[in-house]
Nucleic acid binder design. Structure first.
Length: 469
RNA sequence: GGCCCCAUCGUCUAGUGGCCUAGGACACCACCCUCUCAAGGUGGCGGCACGGGUUCGAAUCCCGUUGGGGCUGCCA
């Protein structure tokens, strides 16, 4: 039987890299096995869900090329959860509870025991009503074992499980209930999700069996899925990524100019590596080589530096035309977009291509070729023009440019030569010129830039810089 | 507090009892190249958390300790 997987994000914030990695593992396994990938939006908590976050999930997944075969929204399936809850109540697996958080904490403190729910309402025979939530009755003894492809068998003593709420007092289901009901209904065979869900998995399994034992006519669970709890992606403090605190929204990376294929390549590497140990691979290669049992067990840090390095390599590997085409959407968003000229950019593109790591850096690197005046970096100016020889260098260079053939190699030759009578090293001679022309101390090769800029504009910038000294 | 997971260079990892004097990648450092910055080349720094076992032999297996993380929500 072909496997059926599901990726089940909740739209309570932007879509982050950890979610993307989980989606990727689900996707790779499903595609490899010729299985089905279901995208299930877990939006049962009306309080904190937002429609824009749902769109964010779709956009993000499309951006990295993770396609899904079936789409569901839990908010449209409430009847199913209600029926399951009713069944659990009817079979004695669930009971109504009117305890508030305060009640529970007070009792825990009073008896001096561990915090948590004590089963206070188990046998009170409460009926549904205002302020009452439905709890699932967990066994008092025995052990529930989770069979996990990545972690092996994990055992949980049932006595350590509190009776979880499965239906809120407002009638909406809690995620573990909706999860079990949907996984059963959708005939999910593999639950591939992040490690943080491992501790609640025994409740999932118990719920599953309770639903099956109930003997309801329809929607009865079949075979329990197998689990694969992937290690979480953590921040620098080694904590689970937080949507609020950590700048890890996938769209952030897209907007900065990371390539989607690099993104998935890097993401896959946090927790998995191909059998031959190579680090660069395509989605196709991953689909071929991916194995759930090869996924690691320890949490991984999302290292932007490595991502950047990979992205830089990928950018350099592009054809010039592809690179230019990829840069254009970023250029048109610039404040000076109206001055940007693709064809002009194309002539310096190879020079820019090997100097950027993200696409958004490309056009700004050569802004001086498009603007009437270079934007001057004051620190660079102070350093380059601080030398008492600076003015003399600018004058000498300007003179040398007057009548030469305006070609990069010639420009370079005469410019460097111009500094020699002044006793300046080559490095020193080019610095004031570079700042006068580009406004900065670093950038693409100067001679080529000058050739493209043109003699008159170049001389004008030299004069302008001279005047400012 | 209770339960659970995890533990190889700074980071991501390879390693599944001898091939390990522990390999790679990113980062970092040095040098070369060089009009700046990159790119590229060469070299370097750097790790099996600790303690007990098991074994002829342990990064690899077992136990403990320590450390980190997660869950313990009418969030997912």
């Amino acid at each position: 039987m072909a496997p059926r997987l599901r990726f089940a994000p909740s739209p309570t914030g932007y879509f982050h890299v950890g979610g993307a990695r989980t989606a990727l593992y689900n996707w790779a396994f499903a595609r490899q096995q010729g299985g089905t990938l279901i995208l299930r939006i877990e939006d049962t908590d009306v309080e904190r869900n937002k429609e824009e976050w749902v769109e964010g999930i779709y956009d993000a997944m499309r951006w990295v090329g993770l396609t899904w075969d079936e789409l569901y929204r839990q908010s449209e399936r409430m009847a199913l959860y209600e029926a399951a809850a009713a069944q659990l109540e009817a079979t004695g697996h669930a009971y109504w509870c009117d305890c508030t958080r305060g009640d529970i904490d007070a009792r825990a403190k009073e008896r001096g025991g561990p915090p948590g729910y004590d089963g206070h309402c188990r046998d009170r025979g409460l009926r549904a009503g205002d302020g009452r939530a439905l709890r699932f009755r967990t066994p008092d003894d025995g052990v529930t074992v989770v069979h996990d492809i990545i972690r092996g068998d994990v055992e949980f003593p049932n006595a350590t499980l509190d009776d979880p709420i499965i239906v809120r007092s407002n009638g909406t289901p809690i995620f573990v209930l909706a999860n079990v009901v949907d996984d059963a209904d959708m005939r999910i065979t593999h639950v591939v999700r992040s490690e943080e869900h491992l501790p609640t998995t025994p409740k999932y399994i118990l719920l599953w069996h309770a639903l099956r034992a109930g003997g309801g006519a329809e929607g009865r669970p079949g075979e329990l899925p197998v689990f694969a709890h992937c290690p979480v992606v953590v921040n620098e403090q080694r904590k689970k990524l937080s949507k609020r605190r950590d700048p890890v929204a996938l769209e952030l990376y897209r907007d900065e100019g990371y390539l989607p294929e690099v993104m998935v390549n890097y993401l896959a590497l946090i927790g998995w590596s191909p059998p031959d140990g190579r680090e660069r691979f395509t989605l196709e290669e991953m689909v071929r080589d991916f194995r759930l049992e090869d996924v690691g067990r320890s949490p991984g840090f999302f290292d932007v530096k490595k991502l950047r390095a990979f992205n830089g390599d990928a950018i350099r590997a592009m054809t010039v035309d592809d690179f230019v085409a990829a840069v254009e959407p970023f250029a048109v968003q610039l404040p000076w977009a109206d001055q940007f000229d693709v064809d002009r950019f194309r002539t310096v593109a190879p020079l820019v291509q090997e100097r950027v790591e993200v696409l958004s850096e490309a056009a700004p690197m050569v802004d001086f070729l498009f603007l009437d005046e270079p934007v001057v970096d004051e620190a660079a100016w102070a350093k380059a023009m601080g030398d008492e020889q600076a003015g003399a260098v600018l004058d000498a260079v300007a003179t040398s440019w007057e009548s030469i053939e305006w070609r990069a190699d010639v420009i370079g030759e005469v410019t460097l030569a111009a500094g020699e009578p002044l006793g300046l090293s080559r490095k020193k001679a080019q610095a004031p010129v570079r700042v006068a022309i580009t406004g900065r101390s670093v950038g693409p090769p100067l001679w080529e830039s000058l050739e493209l800029l043109g003699r008159e504009p170049a001389l004008a910038r030299l004069r302008s810089a001279r005047a400012r000294l």
